[in-house]
Design a binder for these strands. Structure first.
Lengths: 200, 200
DNA sequence: ATAAAATCTTTACAGTGTAAAGTTCGTAAG
DNA sequence: CTTACGAACTTTACACTGTAAAGATTTTAT
């Protein structure tokens, strides 16, 4: 019978509840007890699936990376031109951050301290970075980039978009810069470095 | 006599205590009660000087910006060449983040939600950004940059360094990139965009 | 069938943010 | 000089948090 025991898939329910709380009430409201409440279990039930709050956050962060990965994949598949793919990747990154600012923030918060303890999180992270590297490679093999060091170019591009998004979320950019407009300018500017001048 | 009343400069003592806690024990350990304990007052004494925890964090963040400002100023004064100043600025930014990672993080955490409620914080923030804009301007008037839009170039540069530092602190960059080495490469790469090719 | 393991609950405790009311002290007005 | 007041601080109180410990229920393995 349907007792309070054996929820079925509590682990994922907790992660999902956490994401919903982030979306509705923000980071401050994310507590183990609130998550448990929303999932309809006692406040210590999460400990059967997560060692501590950090572990739950790591799982939520991994889910954030996964969502980001899917958005990036979708953006890349919708474009043929390598440069357009790169641009679409940047937009998708920004869009995720704007849609789910607190989920985005917790994903990159560095709250996950001993990241080696959460292999899921590490793997999702690497997958995303690999996606950026790949699109950069495509640009290079397409003869678009003059720069040789793929990894360095990828880090440069990722840093630029990530920094922009972070500063935007933290409201540390001059108000005159609306997100949707300036991300395009910013990228055109940033990418002009690695492209032979003006072939787009 | 020296009763527990009228500490003298409790407000600043609390800010300093908070910074020390960040330095020694990290963000998790930063609580009003701990701060009060370290300052040698009761756990509600801070409420005479700060409306709530947010307000204390805003003050700590403002202090972080101030410290960053001083580091940037020092870096800029030690160089004559505009490009060297820009490079020094980037290094100083990174150095602050490496020296005091949690103070840096809380400064840019976006934890300060209603930032208009903390004019100190806003002003320190603007001062720092103005410093970046100024060094970019110097580069432009020195004929170094081909790009016209100073503000956009400044945002691009700031985003790149900030994103790199954030990703580094969150350990989201491939381990092969050691900070001190790659910040130089990254900046050479990033700045190559706005400089007429290869005059350094 | 029974033991073991996994999942969940109840109970308990120390730590947290903050509200409320009381205490002490500097200071300004009479 | 006194007195009253307001600022700075303490004590007390409460709801909430993370997490440890022990008990209850259900599944799984032997």
């Amino acid at each position: 019978m349907n007792n309070h025991y054996h929820h079925g898939d509590l682990k994922n329910a907790l992660i999902q509840a956490g994401i919903e709380i982030l979306s509705r009430e923000g980071m401050e409201a994310l507590s183990l007890r609130q998550v448990a409440r929303r999932a309809g279990v006692s406040h210590t039930a999460p400990y059967a699936h997560f060692a501590d709050k950090q572990a739950l956050i790591a799982a939520i962060a991994a889910a954030g990376y996964q969502k980001l990965y899917e958005a990036l994949i979708a953006a890349q598949l919708s474009q043929d031109d390598p440069f357009a793919r790169l641009m679409g990747t940047a937009h998708a990154y920004l869009q995720f951050a704007l849609d789910e600012p607190d989920h985005f923030r917790i994903t990159f918060s560095g709250v996950v301290e001993a990241e080696q303890d959460y292999p899921d999180y590490v793997e999702q992270s690497k997958r995303c970075f690999a996606l950026v590297v790949k699109v950069v490679e495509d640009c290079q093999t397409g003869g678009l980039f003059t720069q040789a060091d793929t990894q360095l170019v990828a880090v440069s591009i990722w840093s630029c978009i990530h920094g922009f998004v972070q500063l935007l979320l933290a409201k540390q950019l001059p108000g005159s810069l609306t997100a949707q407009v300036s991300i395009h300018d910013l990228f055109n500017l940033h990418l002009r470095q690695v492209l032979p001048i003006d072939n787009r």
